[in-house]
Write a protein that binds this DNA or RNA. Structure first.
Lengths: 153, 153
DNA sequence: TGCAACAGTTGTCTATAGCCAATCTTTCGG
DNA sequence: CCGAAAGATTGGCTATAGACAACTGTTGCA
């Protein structure tokens, strides 16, 4: 029977580092929108335009709550809000320019930080990181979208 | 000139997986306290008892905001609040039982998820993950506490 | 001893988030 | 073509967070 602790420890340490990078990438965005609002943007970025109902379901809030949140996002130019062609009682929310830019900016920052970290390593080390990260990512369950949303991914 | 993208991609994927694990570990706690309140608990867990002023500074909020937040945490039995022996104008906040339990529970869940992920790998693969994670953790700047707090780490 | 600086709290205000119930419009089925 | 169901919004309420200004009590120093 082997001991899991050393690996788990190393992974927890690396997770702290990675999460520090994730967190830092979010800081800028959180000066413009709240975490809850950012979560809406992330859903739209990954799933494309959505009906209010789907969106509320995806984000996990009451439809009436989403109405107000979307109201603020529209006011900020982050999302667009239009009546569906097919059915006039449905309302479709989509990412607008500011929203797209915000999400892309966060991703770019995150990626830059990761890249900067990797650049401190030698080629061999970098290859080892690649292998380790790929294995971990594969072994992990596909992270439930709902889980990630908690933290605005 | 080499291409950084593959490594950065893999690392971003792994970060999503890890972040999913972090988020899931937080879900339970967020049924009891808000993310902001949890951040206070995390600071206390990592730095030990603090003065109100230090704590407000660490969490990055106005002292008056912290007064109210601490009020709620005391009411929930998460933290203790007592006047400093040395100076009666200072107030020391410390983790109480419920607070300690909450933070430990989150950490335990997180660790369990990581461990479960690693258990799906062979010994060799696990060793490769260990190596990769350690290299990345070393190369990363020590994550600024302030950054981690954004996500309640 | 007396005053200035320090540490926190309290009062007041604004913004966001969250829910439920009620309402309005639209769509769909009989 | 009429009533029920669907989709979203509005009104009303509570809780949290956040800031600033004003205030209270405590230290420390001159």
């Amino acid at each position: 029977m082997f001991r899991m602790e050393p690996q788990a420890d190393a992974t927890m340490r690396a997770s702290r580092a990675l999460l520090g990078h994730v967190a830092r990438s979010l800081q800028g965005a959180l000066e413009h929108v709240t975490l809850g609002q950012y979560r809406v943007l992330v859903v739209l970025a990954s799933r494309g335009p959505q009906r209010m109902g789907e969106l509320a379901e995806a984000v996990g809030v009451h439809p009436s709550t989403l109405t107000r949140t979307v109201e603020r996002l529209v006011a900020g130019g982050y999302v667009s809000r239009e009546i569906a062609e097919a059915s006039r009682r449905e309302v479709i929310i989509g990412l607008d320019e500011a929203g797209t830019a915000l999400v892309e900016d966060v991703m770019r920052r995150r990626r830059d930080t990761v890249t900067a970290t990797l650049e401190r390593l030698t080629d061999d080390e970098r290859a080892a990181v690649l292998t380790g990260m790929e294995l971990y990512a594969q072994a992990a369950d596909e992270p439930a979208a709902a889980d990630l949303l908690t933290l605005g991914m």
